[in-house]
């Protein structure tokens, strides 16, 4: 039991790295995703095509490759760009480039979710808004946006949970600097010391499971608030569906 508690304590700082990666990429990723979703649904063929291609490319290729690609790209630009600008210290740092790639990735996955929700916004409501003489911005603000976010929220919660899971591969693609180790790297390095596979990996898994549950709980609260006008409150269940 003591061993287990010590293990839990040892993994706590590592969990912060995973939480940092997820927390740093979710807000920006959310905004980008909404933009890409609107872009994909845009009547302008070029905007629509570009957003479509972006979403397809990032959903159709492994995150692992995306990490390697962007990191090596950043490395090769080091001498010509980052060094002269004096930013090479942090541009190449995993704590910066990790969230950047995660943002690009989650933007594509979430954009697909938001696009699906955008298409499911009831026609009659937008028509009613138009009949009231609302401007396009007013239509978006008071009809499209609230409907879209409510429809997309359960799937978006799911995406956030899997984004958190995806943070596990950040340090497999990027270098570990100054003992900044996330859960999985910690588990691996502790495993290499005493070869206790079951203990270290289960504790790491436990952290992932616990944080996923917390995410579900928090996003469930938001969903409750979003749905407060409904006579029967819909509930969210912890049932991760893999759509990534």
């Amino acid at each position: 039991m003591d061993i287990f508690l010590n293990e839990l304590a040892a993994f706590a700082p590592a969990a912060l790295f995973n939480i940092y990666f997820a927390a740093a990429s979710i807000p920006v990723g959310f905004v980008l995703a909404v933009l890409f979703a609107l872009g994909k649904g845009s009547p302008n063929p070029w905007i629509s095509r570009l957003s479509r291609a972006y979403i397809y490319a990032f959903r159709g290729s492994p995150l692992f490759i995306q990490f390697f690609m962007f990191y090596s790209l950043a490395l090769s630009l080091n001498i010509s760009l980052w060094k002269p600008w004096g930013v090479s210290g942090w541009v190449l740092h995993p704590l910066f480039i990790g969230p950047v790639v995660l943002i690009l990735n989650t933007a594509a996955y979430s954009a697909e979710i938001f696009y699906g929700a955008l298409r499911a916004v009831p026609r009659g409501e937008t028509e009613a808004a138009r009949a009231y003489g609302m401007s396009r911005w007013q239509q978006f603000r008071s009809v499209t946006w609230p409907n879209m976010i409510r429809l997309a929220w359960p799937a978006y919660t799911n995406e956030v949970v899997f984004l958190f899971h995806a943070t596990a591969i950040v340090y497999f693609a990027l270098p570990v600097i100054d003992n900044q180790m996330d859960l999985l790297v910690t588990a691996k390095s502790r495993f290499e010391k005493d070869y206790n596979t079951f203990l270290h990996f289960s504790v790491a898994a436990l952290y992932f499971l616990a944080v996923s549950l917390v995410v579900f709980f928090l996003f469930g609260l938001v969903y409750k608030r979003l749905m407060r006008h409904m006579p029967v409150q819909p509930r969210m269940r912890f049932a991760p569906k893999w759509i990534r």
């Binding site: 899971h165 591969i169 497999f172 999985l184 596979t197 990996f201 898994a205 991760p240």
Partner: peptide, 21 residues
């Protein structure tokens, strides 16, 4: 539900090690 609750990479690394051991 358990396998979906943890990252695939974790299981991907864990299973061969555990099986070998």
């Amino acid at each position: 539900s358990i396998v979906r609750g943890v990252p695939d990479v974790l299981f991907f690394i864990f299973f061969p090690l555990a099986f070998e051991q």
